[in-house]
Computed example of a mutant assay.
Amino acid sequence: MSARRSPGWVPPLVLAVALVAVWTVTAALADSAVYPGPGEALQGLQSDITDSRFLGSVGDTARVLLLSYAAAIAAGAVTGMLLGLSAFWSRATLPVVYALNSVPKIVLYPIFLLFLGIGDLSRGSFAFVSGVLPMFLIMVEATAGVRRLHLKLSASLGMSRWSLLRRIVVPSVLPSLASGMRLCFGLTLIGLLLAEMFSGSSGLGYELLRNLSLARVENIIGEVLLIGLLALVPTLALQQLETRIRNRYEVSV
């Protein structure tokens, strides 16, 4: 009888506990003011959380992230699937998008500030672009990889484009869509934090840079822990969703 598999969240939890233990020991051995232990970091985070301004910044980041992420998933998935069905437009567009995606996004942020100004619109748009390009590329490649036999069969049956997408393309690309959703979340979050650090008046990126300017090391490490937690929980949930989708739709060849 095969051994029962542990839940997917157990290995990351074990790793996290091990890292905290190593952190505690090394901080105690170093005994340095610039290397606080977990206790000091949690105290710094607690002092921040009791501040209503900091809680407002957390809410601002969560709100803009949710909107940017949802828009990136929707736009990247839909345009990627539609373009992936056309061999001509795929060949014409992919080199440009790959080249644009290889450019460090932060060097483009002044353009967002120039046209959109300082505020949620520029930060959200930058976060959107950070996530939508990888999502688009993943969906184009996944759609282009749909079995040609299925597409030829749909053409011979005279299926409409909507029926083709609903019955053949979407079920075939769902595993790639789930992977793209997981990857896109982290990239969107990184883009948003960078934008908040450069031009924000609120948000976790702004708070991180503010603590850095005040040399509050415990608060910096505490906020890093908070950002890590806020990123880890959705990522684990998306990973579980990806596993379920792959088990249901992915066909071994």
Results as ranks from 00 to 15, higher is better:
G37Q: 01
L209E: 13
G131C: 03
G131H: 01
L194F: 05
S172C: 09
L165Y: 09
Y69L: 12
D51W: 14
S52E: 06
Q43G: 14
S68D: 15
S252H: 12
I73K: 03
V251L: 11
W89Q: 12
C184M: 04
L29S: 08
S163L: 03
V251S: 09
E242P: 01
R244T: 09
G203S: 09
F115E: 06
G186E: 07
D48W: 09
S57Q: 09
L157V: 10
S172K: 04
L94Q: 08
L208W: 08
Y98M: 09
R166Q: 02
A16E: 00
S163R: 12
R123Y: 03
R167D: 01
L189C: 06
T61G: 04
W9P: 02
Q46I: 07
V107G: 08
L15W: 01
G84T: 13
Y98V: 15
G222Y: 00
G186P: 01
M139H: 10
V224M: 03
A30V: 06
E223L: 14
S125C: 13
S130L: 02
R210H: 04
A92Y: 11
R246C: 07
Y98L: 11
L153E: 05
G180H: 10
A77R: 08
W9K: 05
R244L: 04
L183R: 00
L108F: 05
L113D: 14
L193I: 14
L208T: 09
L241R: 04
W89F: 15
P95E: 15
E196W: 00
L189P: 03
L121T: 14
G76Y: 09
V169R: 06
Q239I: 01
P175A: 04
G119Q: 03
L65V: 11
V22I: 13
D48Y: 08
L15H: 04
A18T: 06
P12D: 00
L232H: 08
L55H: 04
L114A: 15
M159K: 07
Y35G: 08
D48G: 11
R248L: 13
V96C: 00
L214F: 06
A237D: 04
G145K: 13
R91P: 07
T143V: 13
L66M: 11
L204S: 02
G158I: 12
L113K: 04
A71I: 02
G205P: 10
A99H: 11
E196H: 02
S201H: 06
